[in-house]
């Protein structure tokens, strides 16, 4: 599917889901209150920063192999919160990056976060750096940093592939407290096995709403839940229809969603 006209049904669904998300954002901005729970992985951020302060060792933040896209920018939003917390306690930060475009933005995020925390003088220009865009060159560089610096806390948020376990096990070996979150479902088992806290699936995108409690983000989060209910209904109707011989695969509703 390259254009909406190739399959209008899918295009209409995309437009409908977008409209729901936008509607809930607008209602939240107009003052409607939404409740969302906290998730343990994000509560652990403060704990990890506190521990790094006690130990006097640095905090590592890795955005994985993320490029300058939604996954990478979401990672930077989460890191921004961590930096603001860490800046209050004077922790040293390390952020190696694998994507040069994301690196340029990350550098500014770190500097701005220090400024927002009221500690612009603590910003170290060497704390954010580009390592390599080759997967395992980046992995060996980060693993080396973890061992040499004996990091106290390690935050792994972004796009991760086979290198995920290299980071997580290196962190585990130096006794770092580790919090990870990724959209790469195949890497989740490795993070769950090696990290103290793991943020799963769309919790990754919801993290900034959980952290900031900003109405726009909370509205978006609730909109996402409504969208999931719609998808759930589609699945339910489809399952029932396919189980009734009179409807089956030729029923118009099933045809809509058949490729």
């Amino acid at each position: 599917m390259i254009h909406a006209s190739d399959r209008w049904e899918s295009a209409i669904l995309i437009a409908l889901l977008s409209a729901i998300v936008l509607l809930t954002i607008v209602t939240a901005q107009r003052g409607r209150k939404y409740f969302v729970r906290r998730i343990p992985g994000l509560n652990a951020i403060d704990e990890a920063v506190g521990r790094a302060t006690e130990m006097g060792r640095p905090i590592l933040m890795v955005p994985g192999l993320s490029g300058l896209g939604v996954v990478g920018l979401q990672a930077l939003t989460i890191f921004s919160y961590i930096i603001k917390t860490a800046a209050q306690f004077g922790n040293r930060l390390i952020m190696p990056t694998a994507d040069s475009a994301l690196y340029t933005v990350a550098e500014e995020v770190v500097r701005d976060s220090y400024t927002a925390a009221g500690k612009p003088e603590d910003y170290d220009p060497n704390s954010v750096y580009f390592l390599s865009d080759r997967q395992f060159a980046f992995a060996s560089g980060v693993a080396g940093t973890i061992f040499r610096e004996k990091v106290a806390a390690s935050f792994l948020f972004g796009d991760f592939f086979a290198e995920s376990l290299i980071f997580a096990e290196a962190g585990q070996q130096v006794g770092a407290i580790q919090v990870a979150g990724t959209v790469s479902t195949t890497q989740l088992p490795f993070f769950i096995a090696s990290c103290d806290y793991t943020i799963i699936g769309d919790e990754y995108y919801a993290a900034s709403a959980y952290i900031s409690r900003e109405p726009t983000l909370l509205g978006s989060l609730v909109g996402q839940d409504y969208c999931k209910i719609i998808i759930l209904l589609v699945v339910l109707i489809g399952t029932i229809a396919m189980s009734i011989p009179a409807l089956g695969a030729k029923w118009f509703f099933i045809q809509w969603f058949t490729l």
Binding site: S18, V21, L22, L73, L76, T185
Partner: peptide, 24 residues
């Protein structure tokens, strides 16, 4: 996958329409 897809759609909309708060 469904959750991730919708989450991605939501954040893309927020970035596109400059509704993303607290971000860079």
């Amino acid at each position: 996958g469904f959750g991730l897809g919708i989450g991605g759609l939501a954040i893309a909309l927020r970035l596109w329409l400059s509704l993303e708060r607290g971000a860079f």
